[in-house]
């Protein structure tokens, strides 16, 4: 395919994916706003007002970056896992597989869809957060890069999950039993410095800890982790998962007999 044709093909997947989640915005955009709003009310306002500052930051402000990123992670993942699995389940993934589109375009198209939903939901949650506390941005560049890289990473995760999934149960197992615990234990509501030594070390093997801290640094200028280490780790995960996803597509795992 020529470059112009590749652009047209990619644009087609992206438009399709964005229209898909916008068409069902009540299921895809609103729930995150409601849930995260409840977090702000309960943890930020009611409980947070009783707590001391963390790393010199008011508790409400401290949890905002993590909550925004949690919404982005969940939605980027959910978008790709459900959309790609549905296309497998109902066989319309074959529309793309019979076309001359290279595998990397299919992958980039789905990732872009996931990132787009992550950004839309992330923006809505940010707006909700602004009802409770003024928005703070310490470094726009760091915030944008963390958001884009994290959304890309979890879109890739959703894609791999969808490739291996054989039933609807399989697309909810990973988010429920892996993703959610990792997010909650990634330091959204606390600083790892508050944990005993052993659990601090355990926390450092959780990749989400690095993302949340990088986001917190971008918004508030504080982090439990060196920011460059966080970026290297996120980037490394993105590269490995991208390469692995391409390999799966090339082999046709879960797609071709």
């Amino acid at each position: 395919m020529k470059l112009k044709e590749q652009y047209a093909a990619l644009k087609t997947i992206v438009i399709k994916e964005v229209l898909r989640f916008l068409r069902i915005w009540l299921q895809t955009v609103v729930p995150a706003a409601v849930t995260m709003g409840l977090y702000f009310i309960i943890f930020g306002n009611l409980i947070g007002s009783q707590l001391n500052d963390v790393s010199g930051i008011r508790y409400m402000d401290y949890i905002v970056p993590g909550i925004i990123l949690m919404a982005i992670i969940n939605n980027a993942y959910a978008n790709v896992v459900s959309s790609f699995y549905m296309s497998k389940f109902a066989h319309f993934v074959e529309e793309m597989l019979v076309s001359p589109m290279p595998n990397y375009l299919i992958l980039i198209g789905y990732i872009t869809g996931g990132v787009a939903r992550g950004l839309v939901v992330g923006s809505v949650v940010t707006l909700v957060a602004m009802f409770f506390t003024p928005l703070k941005v310490y470094s726009v560049g760091v915030v944008i890069s963390v958001v884009l890289l994290t959304a890309t990473l979890f879109s890739l995760g959703g894609f791999i999950n969808a490739v291996y999934a054989k039933s609807f149960d399989d697309i909810s197992i990973i988010p429920t039993f892996v993703l959610t615990p990792l997010i909650y234990l990634g330091g959204i509501f606390y600083s790892v410095d508050m944990l005993p030594g052993f659990w601090q070390k355990v926390s450092y093997i959780n990749p989400i800890l690095y993302m949340i801290n990088a986001m917190r640094y971008g918004m508030l200028g504080v982090s439990d982790i060196d920011i460059s280490t966080a970026f290297v780790i996120i980037l490394l995960f993105v590269i490995v998962l991208f390469a692995y996803s391409l390999y799966l597509l090339h082999k046709g795992v879960g797609l071709r007999n």
Binding site: E5, A8, A9, T12
Partner: peptide, 9 residues
């Protein structure tokens, strides 16, 4: 489907 074959919108 036309888009997947590289056709402009």
């Amino acid at each position: 489907q036309a888009g997947y074959y590289g056709m402009p919108r």
